[in-house]
Design a binder for these strands. Sequence first.
DNA 1: GTTCGTTAGAGTCATTCTGACATTAACTGG
DNA 2: CCAGTTAATGTCAGAATGACTCTAACGAAC
Lengths: 240, 240
Amino acid sequence: MSSVPGWANVDERRNLPPALAVSTVILGIRRDPEGGPGKLCLPLVRRIRQPHAGLWALPGGPVGSRESLGQAAGRTLAETTGLHPKYLEQLYTFGDISRSPTHRLVTIAYFALVNIDEVGTRVPDENVAWFGVDDPQIAEMAFDHRKIVDYALWRLANKTEYGQIAHRLLGERFTLAQLRLVYEAILGKELDPANFRRQLKNTASIEATDEYLAGGKHRPPRLYRYLGHGPDPMEVDTSK
Amino acid sequence: MSSVPGWANVDERRNLPPALAVSTVILGIRRDPEGGPGKLCLPLVRRIRQPHAGLWALPGGPVGSRESLGQAAGRTLAETTGLHPKYLEQLYTFGDISRSPTHRLVTIAYFALVNIDEVGTRVPDENVAWFGVDDPQIAEMAFDHRKIVDYALWRLANKTEYGQIAHRLLGERFTLAQLRLVYEAILGKELDPANFRRQLKNTASIEATDEYLAGGKHRPPRLYRYLGHGPDPMEVDTSK
DNA sequence: GTTCGTTAGAGTCATTCTGACATTAACTGG
DNA sequence: CCAGTTAATGTCAGAATGACTCTAACGAAC
């Protein structure tokens, strides 16, 4: 059996620490030109080396010894995809013994949201590509990454306060229709515009601005912005 | 210089990979003899070695090379406290550089619930003890364990489906009054017994049995039991 | 300009959910 | 049998919800 170089004699009977890596599920919403519900999609990188060469995998890499886990996630993400998401949250740590065929690998998975304007933008090279989450091409992925993606989608759908994360998928200012499309993409169903508006007014987590979105063909919608108020205390600070 | 295959040139200045450990926050409810709201409490172990010798810490230990992360959490928990919780869920992975003064330490924190009958029971030795979560003795803890405990409490309070976890704090069968006390301990406020009953009937996650709790001084309450239905897909299976 | 189609945004109403409280049922101990 | 206590059900006003209608503001067509 082959031991992993760099990890002196990884004999499974000796208690050597496993390799530690981060991987990130970065979700964005691809707008539907016909104004439909919009699709959740994410960027993936094609594996060059074994194991699982040729399969698509989540962007990520090893954790450096002088960076925190969140920093490692942000760094590897930028290196492989060029993206700098505004939202980064730890998702789950995967450490089953057989998740990599060659060595013991523990992966801290992160969950990121990318602004809707950055979705599907040019990618560094042909080994990076955006996929819809239900694209049959990624029904199978490298390692257990398909399981990681499915869990990220489950977590997103089960978030109690979508308000905290919805504005990370939009820009600083947004219209209520745009915000409703985000909710619809996450929940997978259509919402009544009037009732949606009323509910947001009651929660008061949103504030109307004096500006309006110009350039449309019809009545210009008012722009709103979020009032931040403390969500998950373990959310990663990406503002540094 | 050797590199891990598939991990091009990972030279972190020859630093060893981080030590990998698990720690578990085990919460239970201590009944109030006067029938009050009940307190959340947890077992801690006193550290013998440096660093932080003498301070109280979460039960845990290093991850073995032939066990999954969840297995490591269950094993170290049993070894140090003798407890075998029915619920074990991964909480968060802590990996800041300076969380241990002596070496780089990455800890996967788990979150467990223990049956109410096991709370405060005899402990293996004097280096294990139960504390209320707001006991001033544990305002300070070893490493960043106080932060981990606070995060576990935050997660518990923000759980959407308490039903999924409440019956882990009780036995197989329970009365509605007992269940209500669990909710009150988690939420930190009193609930109206009548309205509480009504809401549970609507969600239909609970089923009435034909049995009644005997031995009380007053009218015997009916016993109920949970109907399991899929919660967090990453919950650890502790049934094996 | 006027009209029309489209979207933004406010209002209506019946239904359901919620919190607070009253009422009845079942048991024990004196 | 009665008093005291807890279990369980019932009632009712106010709030939230879902489905729907109505008005306002714009560009485009005429």
